[in-house]
Computed example of a mutant assay.
Amino acid sequence: MRKSTDTLDDEVNKSKALETKLTESKINRNYWKISFLLLIGIILGFSLFIGIRVSEPQKVNLPKVNETTTTEPTFQIQLNKTQVNDIISYYLNDFLKDSGIKYQFYLEKNALLNGTFKVLGHDMQFYLYFDPFVMENGDIQLKATSLSIGSLPLPITQVMKYVASDYEIPKWVDVQPSSKTIILHLSQFELQNGMKLAADKMNIVDDDIRFNIFLPLDKQNREKGE
């Protein structure tokens, strides 16, 4: 009878041990299941966060760039009379290469226009002197002050009328005989690379000549504007 009781107790203990083992196994399975689901949730959440941040536009305070030529000069250049004369000579030689009339414009103590006109079939050389002034918009005004033409007494206005009618001059140069002035509309003149310039200072006496340089429109904006 004792043996039978011991056997029953052993069976009960085994059953309890098995139940305990099954319970622990179930708990372990639930633990790994929860851990796996939690890991998946973290991965999905992190992926979603990265996706939103990547597609979200960055709020960066970039400098504003004008789509037109800048209103403020990009930089300034300082030249002397020799440098200016070299530039003018190069430009006029290129501009007048197919023209039958040649003339020169250069700086000495004043601005000087040198050319010729015909009198009774003969070429007569003249020297027309100007005082240069910088205008508010960066253009240059040349005010005629004197005329040298040998012993022939001709008024300044007469020579300037001849220049305006018979000389081939750039479109941005405006000859005004009645007021004895020539306006250099630098605002209408464009360098080959698209840059523009404006006069800032014209001190011929102290050999101090300064121009402000402006960046051009970029290529894309140029194509849109055409």
Rank of each mutant, 00 (worst) to 15 (best):
K102H: 08
T82R: 02
E72S: 15
E67P: 05
F117R: 04
G150E: 00
Q176D: 15
D208L: 10
I34M: 07
N193F: 05
E56T: 15
Y31W: 08
M124K: 12
G194Y: 02
K26R: 12
V119G: 06
A164I: 08
L154W: 04
K21M: 10
F75T: 13
K102Y: 04
V84S: 00
E24G: 05
Q176W: 07
Q192A: 15
T68S: 15
Y127V: 09
L147R: 05
F126P: 00
Y31A: 14
F133L: 13
L191W: 06
D86N: 12
L147Q: 04
D86G: 05
Y91P: 01
E226A: 14
D174G: 11
D98S: 14
Y103E: 01
D9C: 08
K201D: 08
T69H: 11
L112A: 00
S146D: 15
S151H: 07
H122F: 11
H185V: 02
D98N: 14
L215E: 15
S89V: 00
E108C: 00
Y91E: 01
Q192L: 15
V119I: 11
S99W: 04
N85R: 01
V65E: 08
D86S: 10
P57W: 00
D98K: 13
Y106K: 01
S165I: 13
P57G: 04
L186H: 03
K224W: 09
P63M: 07
L39K: 10
I50Q: 12
P57R: 03
V159S: 04
V159Y: 01
K16H: 13
N114Q: 08
I42D: 07
L142S: 02
F105C: 01
Y129P: 00
P153R: 06
N28E: 14
T7C: 09
Q125P: 07
P170H: 03
L8G: 10
R222F: 12
A144Y: 02
P170R: 03
M1H: 09
G194W: 01
V54Q: 09
Y127Q: 11
I87D: 01
W32H: 05
L215Y: 13
P177I: 04
E226G: 13
D200N: 15
Y90A: 02
I40T: 06
H185E: 10
K161V: 13
P73T: 05
N30R: 10
S25R: 13
L38P: 05
K109L: 07
N28Y: 12
K161P: 10
E19D: 15
T157C: 03
V159G: 04
D10P: 03
K201W: 06
D10A: 12
